[in-house]
């Protein structure tokens, strides 16, 4: 479904260039759970951003459902972001002045037509799916870190994407809450959603069918996980 080939990316900051990705290839099949592990600074987030269309590579190709995204117009990219892929981050990036349900509805707030009742009910339903029934009208400050990440996941889910990208989703959570989030991702994956997750933790990485190890801008190993 998603195939990245020979991706190169160089950052230039303060006149110093550093090649962060030196020819990385990763494939994600439909419904697959891919974990990306590696030391800090090895280029995981950069790769993740390129996979999720948030960043353009310097060279290489990205095929998503047969479409070459490096050649796509910005309108096409926006459409992919609206309909097909979702991202969550270590920082939950919720809008502090919107309630949980309103945050979940953000993807549908781009139009001039008001959001209908059906969608609002859907938002409540998705929130209950991630375990937040009864907390739909709370502002993010009234939610714990784990709950905030669940809202972010609900916001990612409501458009029914085919793939969810998660960049260290447990990075700011204690291990118990972190475990619960991983379990939730597993559950969603079991229901058919492809998941690509960056993590520090070898334990969490085991959730993936495939574990990609990165080192210094290159893929250093691909491990298939039977269980």
């Amino acid at each position: 479904m998603l195939n990245l080939k020979d991706i190169h990316k160089t950052y230039t900051a303060d006149g110093v260039s550093s090649e962060v990705l030196k020819g990385v290839s990763i494939d994600v099949s439909e419904g697959e759970f891919v974990s990306i592990v590696g030391k800090s600074g090895s280029g995981k987030s950069t790769m993740m951003n390129i996979m999720s269309t948030l960043l353009e590579p310097d060279s290489g190709s990205i095929f998503f459902k047969g479409r070459e995204l490096t050649q796509a117009s910005s309108a096409e990219i926006n459409s992919v972001r609206r309909n097909d892929i979702s991202v969550i981050f270590q920082a939950y990036h919720l809008f502090p002045y919107l309630t949980a349900a309103e945050n979940v509805l953000l993807p549908f707030m781009q139009g001039f037509a008001p959001i209908g009742k059906a969608l609002r009910e859907e938002a409540f339903e998705v929130l209950s799916r991630v375990g937040l029934s009864g907390k739909e009208n709370r502002l993010p400050v009234k939610l714990s870190g784990g709950e905030q990440q669940r809202v972010a996941i609900a916001r990612a889910l409501i458009k029914k994407p085919s793939v969810l990208f998660a960049d260290e989703p447990t990075g700011s959570l204690d291990s118990k809450t972190g475990n619960a989030i991983i379990d939730l991702l597993r559950e969603l994956n079991a229901a058919g959603l492809a998941v690509v997750m960056v993590t520090h933790s070898p334990e969490y990485a085991k959730a993936g069918h495939t574990i990609v190890s990165m080192e210094d801008g290159l893929v250093s190993g691909i491990e298939k996980n039977a269980g």
């Binding site: 999720s52 948030l54 910005s74 459409s79 972001r81 990036h93 953000l106 781009q110 916001r155």
Partner: peptide, 16 residues
């Protein structure tokens, strides 16, 4: 900036 980034990631166009 953060909000704008999230909105862009959710598929909001520049004109939106």
């Amino acid at each position: 900036k953060n909000e704008i980034g999230i909105l862009r990631a959710l598929g909001y166009s520049g004109s939106k």
